[in-house]
Design a protein around this nucleic acid. Structure first.
Length: 316
DNA sequence: CTGACCCTGAGG
DNA sequence: CCTCAGGGTCAG
C-alpha cells in the first residue's frame, strides 16, 4: 500500500518527466477510476487536453498537477490523484517500455500486479510518453478540482509554487514531511480530543499521511498504546509520537519508501524495500524488538493494531 | 463517533 | 463458498 513516503517518491519521479509537458490525450480504460470526476470523462478531457503540467504537488497522500493553458496562464484547476490501496503511476515511453526515473534500486519482492490488465487510465504527453495509472483494486482515482487558497497562506504542499491547493484537498491537514507543518499545534489538537490516539493519528483533518502502518510504528516508538485518549497525553508525549511518525517516514523515504508486499512499486515499477525495518506492524506473535515480550494484534475500529503489551501502556 | 461501502485477490 | 486487507468518504 502506498503510504506517504512512497507517494513522495512517486511525486519526485514524476516531476522531471511531466513538468513542462502538455497533455495531448486522455485514454480511459476503466471508468471507475474517474468516479470522483464531476462531469465524467468529457469534463476531464476538456480540462486536460491542451493543458501543460506546471508542477507536481503532494499533501498527505494526495498528489496533484498544476495546469496551465497554452498561453501559460493558470487554468484555475488542478489534476488530482490518489493511489488508494494499490495504485501506481508509471511513465511509459512510446514503444511501451517502462522508463527509469528517480528512486534507488530495490530487490524484487515477487511479481507486481499485471500492469496491462490493471491499467485504468493514461495521459498521453506531447513528448510521446504516457503517464499510466495502474490500480488493481480501484480505490484510487484521478479528477480535476478548482484551486483555492490554503488556510494558513503557506505553500500548499510539497512541490507547490504557491498557497493554492485543490478544493478536493482543502480539508486535508498538512503532513509531517511538509516544511510548513506545525507539530506543536497538532500536538495540542491531539490533547484536546477524547478519542483514542490512534483514531486521531489516522484522522487526515488533524494530520495527514499517517496510515495504519505508520500509526502503529509511531505508537510503538513512543511507547503509547493505540487506545490512549488524546486528553491523557502530555504535550511532550504527543510531540514524541509525532516526531516518531516523522522519523519513520523520513527513514522510509531515504530508502525509497516502505513496502510490506509486492503491491507497491515505484514510478518505474520497482518495489520499495523498507518492510524489514518495521518494528511492530505485521509482527504479531514475534518478540518486541525493544523488550522481547510477544507483540499482540487486536482489531480496533475495523483495522489491525499491533502493539507490545509490556512497553506500550495506556495509562500515562 | 461507528460502520458500510468501494474493490480485488489471496487464503481458509 | 466465505473472509480479510487497506484509505477515504458518506450515511446513520
Amino acid at each position: 500500500m502506498p503510504e506517504l513516503p512512497e507517494v513522495e517518491v512517486v511525486r519526485r519521479g514524476l516531476a522531471p518527466r511531466t513538468v513542462g509537458r502538455t497533455v495531448t490525450d486522455v485514454e480511459l480504460l476503466d471508468a471507475r477510476i474517474i468516479r470522483r470526476q464531476h462531469g465524467g470523462i468529457d469534463r476531464l478531457r476538456a480540462g486536460l487536453v491542451g493543458s501543460t503540467l506546471t508542477a507536481v504537488v503532494r499533501r498527505g497522500k494526495f498528489l496533484w498537477w498544476r495546469l496551465a493553458d497554452p498561453d501559460g496562464a493558470e487554468t484555475g484547476e488542478a489534476l488530482m490523484g490518489h493511489l488508494g490501496m494499490s495504485g501506481q503511476l508509471r511513465i511509459a515511453t512510446a514503444d511501451g517500455a517502462t522508463v527509469t526515473p528517480g528512486g534507488p534500486p530495490a530487490p524484487s519482492e515477487g511479481p507486481a500486479p499485471d500492469p496491462q490488465r490493471h491499467r485504468r487510465l493514461s495521459l498521453h504527453l506531447d513528448d510521446g510518453t504516457r503517464v499510466d495509472l495502474i490500480d488493481q483494486r480501484l480505490f484510487g482515482g484521478v479528477w480535476t478540482s478548482p484551486l483555492v487558497e490554503a488556510a494558513d497562506g503557506a505553500l500548499a504542499g510539497v512541490g507547490s509554487p504557491d498557497a493554492l491547493l485543490p478544493e478536493g484537498a482543502s480539508h486535508i491537514a498538512r503532513d509531517l514531511l511538509d516544511p510548513a507543518v506545525d507539530l506543536g499545534a497538532i500536538a495540542r489538537t491531539l490533547r484536546a480530543r477524547r478519542s483514542a490516539v490512534k483514531a486521531l493519528l489516522l484522522n487526515q483533518e488533524i494530520v495527514s499521511g499517517i496510515g495504519n502502518i505508520y500509526a502503529d510504528e509511531a505508537l510503538w516508538s513512543a511507547r503509547t498504546r493505540y487506545d490512549t485518549p488524546g486528553t491523557a497525553l502530555s504535550q511532550r508525549r504527543a510531540l514524541a509520537i509525532l516526531r516518531a511518525a516523522r522519523e519513520v517516514m523520513e527513514r522510509a523515504l531515504a530508502v525509497g519508501g516502505t513496502s510490506f508486499d509486492a503491491l507497491y512499486v515505484n514510478v518505474d515499477g520497482r518495489s520499495g524495500y523498507f518492510a524489514r525495518s518495521l518494528n511492530a506492524y505485521g509482527r504479531e506473535g514475534e518478540p518486541c524488538p525493544r523488550c522481547g515480550r510477544l507483540l499482540r494484534r487486536v482489531i480496533y475500529q475495523g483495522r489491525s493494531s499491533h502493539f507490545c503489551p509490556r512497553c506500550q501502556r495506556r495509562t500515562m
